[in-house]
Design a protein around this nucleic acid. Structure first.
Lengths: 215, 215
DNA sequence: ACTTGTCCTGTCATGCCGTCAGCTTACCGA
DNA sequence: TCGGTAAGCTGACGGCATGACAGGACAAGT
């Protein structure tokens, strides 16, 4: 498990090579934000990076391979989302704040990386295991924390025994992800961000604790 | 607004032509279920339909054009989802049943059409207005009904005034759509359908009425 | 059989894909 | 300073999908 970056044909990449590789990744990332995934061509990425298509194929097997690379990076960042839930309280005013900050943090993360997350989502929905795994990695950080929170509340008798912590957490996280990826849609449809976030927080709070929050 | 089906070059299609066209749509539909959208090629669709690529281009400008066609059909079917909410009660046991049936109906609809809905979702998320419009058409049928339900309950004083009906309905519908499109994901992850549906119904009920259901 | 209009396909220019051999560049030890 | 070696890059090529066109096949009416 060395951090060795290798080319497709097995050579180890040096300083220059890594720079080129990174530049290709950056350009691909940018292209994903500005044009449909389906239309992203190797030749365009290469041109944008000021290199040739052949160079691209030295570092990545194909476009999807490069996308997976970017996705892994985002997944690493996403692991930090656990902080939004782990060890936070779910009672009283503090509980409401937990819900609010979770929503806030989640939506921001999604907006920062929306292009690549869209592609991950599609790949996962289409049944590609690699993308599915990455999606899990990102969402699990929050889902698992939320699942634990529910279990804890159940143990204390504050939440009904008959709800499934995993299903509840998964549903809520799926909701956050879906709303996040259609944020623009909501706004053009007439729902303002200012209305959206409190509502999501309310739903999260209701789902986890089963009670209305005390603001 | 005649129902006239036309070829790309303007001629009206006859019986035989319409049959060919429909066959191409069917084959495309099938291909979308079995392979990633990105990899669907005109030549494959044509081969599967027992015809030539040139024929495909007589009826559709490109793959996306044909996909939009299929999407419109699904949107028409989706309009019927209003029935799951319109005029249904949200109090007592009947309220719980409304929530359950909504979840059930929604998930079934999604599973029946998951391939095309995935593509619509992607197109919408990528900012394509045509796909966005279609997505709205499908989701609005439910969202608007739910929005009305919330407004009604607010008018009766049964729901807090400070929640935005549109944001709440939109969030819940987005959740249903997201969970639906990752149904397989949930199951391979260890959450059973039998757990998932009641949880979703619970969340819907909580979101709309603000109260736990009486089962 | 002939005509007319619909329907399909063979073919072609174009452009992207993915690979390879071979050239250039950087690093290093003598 | 000077090769030697490995990293890094690219031109060029066969292969395939695209999208356009003209012309052949076919059904229906006369």
């Amino acid at each position: 498990m060395t951090g060795q970056v290798r080319t497709v044909d097995g050579r180890v990449a040096g300083r220059r090579g890594q720079a080129t590789r990174q530049k290709l990744l950056d350009c691909l990332s940018e292209m994903l934000s500005s044009s449909p995934y389906r239309d992203v061509k190797v030749i365009d990425v290469a041109r944008k990076a000021g290199t040739s298509p052949a160079t691209f194929y030295q570092y990545f097997p194909d476009v999807e391979g490069a996308v997976l690379e970017i996705a892994e990076e985002v997944a690493k960042e996403g692991a930090g989302l656990t902080e939004l839930v782990a060890g936070r309280p779910w009672v009283g005013k503090a509980g409401w704040q937990t819900a609010e900050e979770l929503v806030e943090g989640f939506l921001d993360f999604w907006r920062r990386n929306d292009a690549i997350l869209r592609v991950i989502d599609l790949g996962a929905a289409e049944g590609d295991k690699r993308f599915y795994k990455i999606r899990m990695k990102i969402l699990n950080s929050v889902t698992n924390s939320l699942t634990d929170s529910v279990k804890e509340l159940q143990a204390k008798g504050r939440v009904d025994k008959d709800i499934s912590p995993a299903a509840m957490a998964g549903s809520l996280v799926a909701m956050l992800a879906a709303v996040a990826s259609h944020q623009k849609g909501f706004t053009t449809w007439g729902v303002k961000q200012a209305e959206l976030r409190p509502n999501l927080a309310l739903l999260v709070h209701l789902g986890i604790t089963g009670k209305k929050p005390t603001k």
